[in-house]
Amino acid sequence: MFHITSKLKGSTAVIATATMVLAPVFASASPLGSDPIRLVIPFGPGGGSDITARVLSATAPEFCGPRIDVVSMSGAAGLEAVNFVRSAPANGHTLLVSDYGPVVTSGFVDEVDWSHDDWQPVMNFTEWLPTVYTRPDHDIQTIEDWVAAAESDPGSITFGHANPLGLVHLPLILFEMETGLENIHVPTSGGGETRSLIMGGHIDLGMTLPASIASEVASGELTALGVFSEERSAVLPDTPTFREAGYDVVLPAWLMVIATSDVPAETVEFLQDCFMEALASPTAVAMSDRVNAGIEPMNSEDSTALYQATVTSIEGILRNIGEID
């Protein structure tokens, strides 16, 4: 037993020495230690958040100092990841990469021991624009067709979406609140199932993110009706926004790097600077293009304003549909 311990100590010492020798010169100016930074994602591996976080983990070590690992924790519908980051030491080495679902929505609807003020955004990667789509031989081909059909026979149109109360469902709820229209909401296991059901003629409409249907829309296999955003999506240039059609429904979903609010301000600032520098590098830009991540970094201050605006708007929606009182 003692033998094993001393062996372990020996190897740790070797690794520690090696790390010190190899440590970049600027490490002295950094508020970070030499331990790796963990980007914890509250979803399974392979999804949009994972891929986007990997662009950062591959490019940022050069600018930030320590190695960066992406850790996927999809347990307890993402809350395991959120709680893990929450209980980690507040030194900026454990960060959450998430959309608003597991932080903002969960903070309202789940039993959690934190509030929305316990989090502070470090930076925002991108804004995902929820998009309504259908098959090209469906009667409904435009936002106007949808509204007309829903008005003539309320509650007849079936609408598929993944993640109830998530980023491809809340815009539908918001749209119904604005217009008073009724649709049948059909939760699915994910974007793939929504698409199969639409293509097979089992449901009428569905919601997804532009990157996942862009090639099918271009080839005419799917029709995109409209985008819930201020401006049109870069990958769906011919698809109008709901605002253009006269409905002021805008609910983009951000993907942020989030720290707990007890991480020192100088650490957050350092992380923001080195992350944004890394994402502006030619390697990161090329990677982002290849995986279609659409990364457009936003600094901590702007991200915080966006975060707070989202908390307010989602609280309004959830209160309106009776999820919270």
Partner: peptide, 9 residues
């Protein structure tokens, strides 16, 4: 048990 919210893997 909050950890069971995501179900058994």
């Amino acid at each position: 048990i909050p950890e069971l919210a995501g179900g058994l893997a």
